[in-house]
Nucleic acid binder design. Sequence first.
DNA 1: GCAAGGTC
Length: 709
Amino acid sequence: MKVVIAEKPSVARDLAKVFGKTTKKDGYIEGPGYSFTWAFGHLVQLAPPEVYGFKGWRVENLPMLPERFKLAVRQQKTASGTSDDPGVVKQLNIIKKLFDEATEIIVATDAGREGELIFRYIYYHLKCKKPFKRLWISSQTDEAIKNGFRNLKPGTEYDTLFFSAQCRSESDWIVGLNATQALSIAAGNRAVLSLGRVQTPTLAMICFRYLENKNFKPQIYFQVAIYLNKDDVGFRALSIKNFKDEETALEVLKKVRDVASGDAAGGLIQNVEVKPRKEQPPLLHDLSSLQQEANKRKGFTADQTLSLAQTLYESKLITYPRTGSRYIGEDVLAGIPQLIENLEHHPLFGKQASFLKTAKLNKRSVNAAKVTDHHALLPTENVPSGLSPDLQAVYDLIAGRMLEAFHQECIKELTKITIESGSLFVANGTVIQSPGWRSVFNQKDDEKEDEDNATLPKVSKDESLPIEKKEVLEKQTKPKALYNEASLLKAMETSGKEIEDEELRQAMKNSGLGTPATRASIIETLIKRDYIKREKKLLLPTEKGLAVYELVKDKKIAQAELTGLWEKRLEDIRTGGSVAEFKNEIREYTRTITSELLEAGRGLSGLIAEPEPEEGAVICPHCKKGALRFGDKAVSCNGYQRGCSFVIWRTMSGKQLTDSQIMELIEKGRTSVLKGFKSKAGNSFDASLLLADGKVHFVFAPRTEEAKQ
DNA sequence: GCAAGGTC
């Protein structure tokens, strides 16, 4: 029997379908001659530092540079700490059993670097030795799948891809964990001050923009506006020049031949320029553009949108959401007319669907070469009903975008009228002649220029019009806007470089910060660390975030370019370049940044405030701070983290345990230490949570002999 | 108690 392993259940199902009759089993699907199993993303990952004996967060451990990395089962967090995720363990056992029985292993994880890593980590963790073949497809249509199975590649052809993936993974571990511990320890170990290749440049972007905005000195300038009229259609024209001081503007104003100054038609039309402009429809959505749109229109956070999209995906209403491509291939295009027809009764854009059914489809979003692991977001053939408003909103953004993307161009007419009246003035106007794709949502332009006239009358050269009013306008230059989630996601895609052009932005994506699947969680991490906060729609740095930024802003770890540099090297490795060289450089860099941060981070200690104890929290009598909560089951003093040399204890019932009672429980083996450890010195503990007689006790005890005195 | 990456 051949065993096929996919990255996720949905792909395994798609593959199995092609082979005809299949039976669903626990954790895999059985078909004729094949079994199809799956992972759920990374089931196996790099082991945490403790596994190498790096206990606690201590200077002596740094830098942590494992010679050979170890793998561990993905962890889950529970009230009593972290442990192997039972769902993952179960699936790994199923995979192991299938691999053991297999005559051939076929790797069908996503066709990309991380897909390769997902499989290899599982394979090496299970100590499997069987050779494997690789299925490499970028589309899940029956034809593509069949073709892929006819053209399986030897697994070894992807060894260098694995090496590059492994380097990415290990380098993020080494740099991220060491930098995080170094900064946190230096600042007094009172809070986690995390740093990483992606999160720190992201924080830097937010802080830089915030400071730039705050320190912006607006320049005041003046413009002269005149108001003309023809056939009862009024419009406004502005002086071509801006003026630094009001006096000059007033002089220009004075020369304007308005009606009040006795000139019945003092505005001489010097020139009329009419230009048509075609506006292509937007591309189909990828996750990032969906998140941006949902943030702009509905105020959803990136994280909310991802989770709503995941729900729609699990309900089989939309295609795979964590895609980074905004294109589809010809094969998918074949199914689009049906998808459009399905929307005919949609209350918002049923009409447009009906129209599009008979129109020629715009092929701008069709480009198989730009489809990577997954194609752009589309609705599926299933028609939803009774969705919650939020789910419906996200569904509508995806379905509506599909209509837009295949719709016709929007044709606009740009008119520019130049008027002479003492000096030169210009009136701009935009008229939509054929809305095309814009009729789907009937949305105005994003950047509506306030200098534009909604309507302009027909005027001709050398005509003279009355000027009904004139005035001096005082204006200010504006700073760049603070980031919100939409603009931050956009900036992350292009490493902070501002690129308006959609296609150019697509091209830059490969060197962007993070991936579509991880950006939302990066933002959430920065919030969790108290580096940034949401204020209405804006993302603003906190004091802590700014302090960390100040400290690291000139270091490589805060530069978006670091990712670009790594990517270049990883690509070298994929094509056969030296792995050892890159690894050595990363280690060397880690040594440098670790010692720099240990030194520099000391300046932060005063800035990291203690969190206020929560309402009803247990207060440690020694350090007078609130104890940590483990769900509703347990609390524990976190004294050793904040320099309190005592760890305190209380049982659930309020009964105090003495040191000797604790020792007795441990010695009798009736207690298991869930967190921390007991030292050989007897009553010296690092433990904070004990289980005895099936009851949870919170035990606070002196950590060392010295502390007891 | 840490990274970034994947996905339920």
